[in-house]
């Protein structure tokens, strides 16, 4: 399977300051309405795992993870 073809969308509970964007390896960080932050980007499995670890290291609560064919998002 070619990981490169997929974009991930991670929804996190709480509003995260935009300056965390660089912390998450080039994922795009946006604040969603309500109480959520969304990280999006094309990453492979290894990077995704690293990302999850970072979220977890900050005690951030992961609400959902979605995967799409790259290019489908926006």
């Amino acid at each position: 399977m070619d990981d490169e073809d997929y974009a991930y969308e991670l929804t996190i509970q709480g509003q995260l300051d935009p300056r965390w964007e660089t912390w998450f390896d080039g994922m795009k960080l946006s604040v969603a309405t309500g109480d959520f932050t969304i990280l999006t980007g094309v990453v492979d499995q290894v990077t995704l795992r690293g990302l999850l670890n970072k979220l977890w290291d900050l005690n951030l609560t992961l609400v959902s993870v979605k995967r799409r064919k790259a290019g489908v998002i926006e």
Binding site: G14, Q15, L16, D17, W20, G34, D35, T37, L58, L60
Partner: peptide, 8 residues
């Protein structure tokens, strides 16, 4: 009243 991440 804030929704921001506590540490932030």
């Amino acid at each position: 009243g804030s929704n921001r991440f506590v540490l932030d």
